[in-house]
Computed example of a mutant assay.
Amino acid sequence: MLTKYEQQKIETTPKKFDVKDYFANKKNMVEAEILNVHKKIVMNKYPTWGQCFNDLEMEQLRGFIDIVDRKIQASNQRINMLKTIQQSDQTSFMQNTGQMQSVAPENVASPQSSQTDDLMNPFIDITEMINFSDLME
C-alpha cells in the first residue's frame, strides 16, 4: 500500500505556482474584466432593443420591421443607382478624352454627389423619417 502511494505521489507531482504564474493569472483576470466592461459599454452605446418597443403589440412591431425593410431596400437601390451613374460618367469621360483605361474602383466618390442632392432626392421621403434619438439613454 505504501509503494502504491509513493508511485502515485511521483506520478502526480504538483505544479509549482511561482510569482510568474501568479501575475499571468492576474493578467488574464484583468483582461477578462476589461472585455466585460467593453461589452457593457457597447451594449449601452448601441442597444439592440429599446424600452419603447416593450409596449408595442405584435402588429405594430411587424409594421416597424416592414418600414425598416423598405428603407433598407430603398437605400440599396439608391446605392446601386449611384454606382451605375458613377460608372457611366467615368466611361463617358474616358471616351470623351480618348483614354480607354479601366474604370476606377467603385468606392471613389462621384463629383456630382453632394449633400444637397441627397436632400432633393425623390427616393428619400423626409416625412417618413422617425426620430430614434430619444431611445438612446
Rank of each mutant, 00 (worst) to 15 (best):
T3S: 10
Y5D: 03
Y5N: 02
E6W: 05
E6G: 01
Q7M: 07
Q7S: 06
Q8W: 05
K9D: 04
K9T: 06
E11A: 09
T12Y: 07
F17L: 02
D18I: 03
D18C: 04
V19T: 11
V19E: 12
N25K: 09
N25L: 06
N25S: 05
N25M: 06
K26G: 01
K27V: 03
M29Q: 12
M29G: 05
A32S: 12
A32M: 07
L35D: 04
H38W: 01
K40M: 03
K40P: 00
I41Q: 02
I41P: 00
I41T: 00
V42N: 02
M43E: 11
M43D: 13
N44Y: 01
Y46T: 01
T48A: 08
G50V: 03
Q51R: 02
Q51L: 02
C52H: 06
F53K: 08
F53A: 12
D55L: 07
D55T: 06
D55K: 08
E57N: 12
Q60L: 09
F64H: 12
I65G: 01
I67D: 10
I67N: 10
I67R: 13
V68R: 14
R70V: 06
R70W: 03
R70K: 15
I72N: 11
Q73M: 14
Q73T: 15
A74W: 01
N76D: 15
R78V: 10
R78D: 02
I79S: 11
N80W: 09
N80C: 14
L82F: 02
L82G: 00
K83E: 12
T84P: 00
I85Y: 01
Q86A: 12
D89E: 13
Q90G: 05
T91C: 09
Q99I: 10
Q99W: 03
Q101P: 04
S102A: 14
S102H: 10
V103L: 14
A104F: 00
N107D: 14
V108Q: 06
A109M: 09
A109G: 03
S110E: 00
S110D: 04
P111G: 05
P111M: 08
S113Y: 05
D118Y: 04
L119S: 11
N121T: 13
N121K: 09
F123T: 15
F123L: 15
I126L: 13
T127H: 07
T127E: 14
N131M: 02
N131D: 14
F132S: 07
L135Q: 15
L135A: 10
E137Q: 14
